[in-house]
Design a protein around this nucleic acid. Structure first.
Lengths: 202, 202
DNA sequence: GTCTATACTCTGATAGAC
DNA sequence: GTCTATCAGAGTATAGAC
């Protein structure tokens, strides 16, 4: 992974990662080929391998940082803010992520389906810690009666599942809705109602 | 695809499909290899190709019928039953499917991530029709005030997303929960509460 | 029905000319 | 930095012996 020094290097470097995101997010690590990535990036295969010495390094370059940006909205949930506002804001930002970065969502989903061979450790450490921390915040809000009681960790799971579904199962959602729908706008409306009803204190 | 006539044929046929489910559900169509499937089935590669003339036919044999069994619980939702009971029963059966048939869930998820090249048509026809029909049932219940108002199609999406998440993202769920948890039992509890609160008429 | 051998293509990766 | 040429191995699939 050459550090981009010149403009042409930076451009090719970015083109490769963008192309790789296309291909890996659709076919997974094993299903993707360097030929496809090189073609999508507008480079020859040897030239691609000049920038990234191996297929694995292209893939892990994409994964690195993905979880971080993916979790930024959760990190942003403020313990001192208004509970409903914080949670609904998190849901909304996750819907926006699914709408604006569906390839990243699918790349992540692919890695999970494979059993997360390259991410398992970070899931068990960084992710687990962050969820524990935010679950504690949710518990506090519940104890104070500011939101209704519910399993806080599964509450977080539900937000992930519901928002990422619209990116990962995009084909299915559109096939069922048919033309003339904006899945993400409808998702935002639906999920706002869902979490309001779930979390309204009695 | 030979029709199983002898006992040994039936056994090998089943062994191949079971092995293929393992491999395809983890790596997707392109990422899976006949070598892996043959080895897992305890057969040689040529022998595998004696039963299924091509990789594609093994894969499509798995897909055929998958959507049908996957949707049986939705089909079973009875318009004449008690609304809350019918919906919560559907959720429960979907959780059980995720628990008992996670490979099928992941195979389906893989196909969706790839853009559903082999299922798009059936999604736009059979699936769409079934959802429209059941959404109409839900609308009726809402109009009668027996459950709270909410977008019925997205309600169905939410059940799919929330239940299948526990099969498809099993690694992540377990990594975050840590040992000593039963993800599916907890999911059942959480989702029962979620849908009770979402759908209780005021 | 099952095996060995093999054809042929694709895939990841390298060498070396320019 | 980029290209052509190429390699070794893996991949799907077939032929043919037993």
């Amino acid at each position: 992974m050459t550090k981009p020094r010149t403009k042409i290097q930076a451009k090719n470097h970015a083109a490769i990662l963008d192309a790789a995101l296309d291909v890996f997010s659709q076919s997974g690590f094993r299903g993707a080929t360097l030929d496809q990535i090189a073609e999508a990036a507008g480079l020859s295969k040897p030239n691609l391998l000049y920038y990234f010495p191996s297929k694995d390094l292209v893939y892990t370059s994409l994964l690195n940082g993905l979880l971080q940006t993916w979790l930024d909205p959760l990190r942003a949930m403020d313990p001192n803010g208004d509970p409903a506002r914080e949670i609904l804001g998190y849901v909304r930002r996750k819907v926006e992520l699914s709408r604006d970065y569906p390839r990243e969502s699918r790349l992540f989903a692919n890695e999970m389906l494979q059993g997360a061979p390259r991410m398992k450790h970070i899931l068990q450490t960084d992710l687990r810690d962050l969820v524990a921390q935010k679950a504690a915040v949710l518990e506090t809000w519940m104890a104070e009666g500011r939101i209704a009681r519910v399993n806080p960790v599964h509450l977080i799971f539900s937000i992930w599942a519901l928002t990422q579904h619209y990116a990962d199962f995009d084909v299915q959602v559109r096939a069922v809705l048919g033309p003339g729908h904006d899945p993400f706008a409808e998702a935002d409306d639906f999920l706002t109602i869902l979490y309001q009803r779930l979390l309204s204190p009695d």
